[in-house]
């Protein structure tokens, strides 16, 4: 008996000698929002398909809500939004949602308010063929929320969406996680994930190379904080000498430091007085962290 919503243990998958997923292990708990990151072809979709029971794994164990992937119990408690779905264009949004509600054994009347939650209430009676890409994606998301699933798998839910629609998607994900559902979403749009997920898994060439909270990953990566100091004209050289930096660029000086040294560096800059006009502080972004883990894994391989 285990209490995790999703348990993946030493799972592998080979396609004709090519390792699509290589010895991946992780487990997710109730109410967690987890992002699965990886470049195209890293094995994200293969992993999803194994979790759903569509692909047989070559080794290891997967348990979905305590049940075998693809079993009736697993499919009743979990829901899935595939990447790039084309709904039958001749049907209306309401009809599509009703169809999936019936398949999931939910009363359509209980599922239809979901259209309002994803902002499709006005378009519910229109044919899906008239929907924009974002509207189709939101219809797919509504489908994945039918019947309050305990595990929600979303394959690139925000790809092709405008910033406001993305915001809405993350708000919805936050809501369902707050109700106790586990959300596992894959993405390669990294920066938008900051502060919107509890945990990040990074998949690189089929291997799981990182599994932690974002700030922990930042610490592990040990990436420097980059300070960019804009100086008065003609003061570039002097500022660079004072701060011990060799990187100059017209009217600015660049300086790398660790988290511990940040305050010290800032006070050194402020002590330069009116030689300095402005300071930019760049904490390493998720893109930088991701690139770090992805590259390290590839060098090792």
């Amino acid at each position: 008996m285990n209490t995790s919503s999703l348990l993946v243990e030493n799972t592998s998958k080979n396609f004709a000698g090519f390792k699509a997923v290589d010895d991946v292990t992780f487990d997710l708990n109730a109410g967690e929002r987890v992002a699965l990151l990886g470049h195209n072809g890293a094995g994200k979709t293969t992993l999803f398909k194994m979790i759903l029971g569509f692909l047989r794994r070559d080794g290891g164990r997967i348990s979905v809500l305590g049940a075998e992937p693809g079993s009736h119990a697993a499919r009743s408690g979990a829901s899935y939004l595939p990447e790039a779905v084309a709904f039958p264009g001749a049907l209306t949004g309401k009809e599509v949602l009703t169809f999936y509600a019936r398949l999931k054994g939910e009363k359509p009347a209980l599922a239809l308010p979901l259209l309002e939650r994803v902002g499709l209430a006005d378009a519910a009676g229109r044919k899906v063929s008239t929907y924009s890409k974002g509207m189709r994606q939101r219809l797919g998301l509504a489908q994945a929320l039918i019947g309050q699933p305990k595990l929600v798998l979303l394959d690139e839910p925000t790809t092709g969406l405008d910033p406001i629609s993305r915001q809405n998607v993350y708000e919805l994900i936050g809501e369902i996680a707050a109700k106790g559902a586990t959300v596992l979403l894959s993405s390669h749009a990294l920066t938008e994930l900051e502060a919107k997920t509890d945990r990040i898994l990074i998949l690189s060439k089929g291997c799981l190379v990182a599994d932690d909270q974002l700030n922990q990953l930042r610490e592990q990566a040990g990436l420097p904080i980059r300070l960019k100091i804009w100086t008065k004209p003609d003061a570039v050289q002097e500022v660079a000498n004072q701060l011990g930096s060799t990187r100059m660029n017209g009217r600015s000086v660049e300086l790398d430091c660790t988290l511990d040294e940040k305050i010290q560096a800032l006070s050194a800059i402020s002590s330069l007085g009116n030689l300095v006009e402005d300071v930019d502080v760049h904490a390493p972004s998720l893109d930088d962290v991701y690139r770090h883990f992805s590259n390290t894994a590839q060098k090792e391989a």
Partner: peptide, 13 residues
């Protein structure tokens, strides 16, 4: 091809 079968087969049918 359309991807709808992925969604349908992930339902308990």
């Amino acid at each position: 091809e359309k991807g709808t079968l992925l969604m349908t087969f992930s339902c308990p049918i």
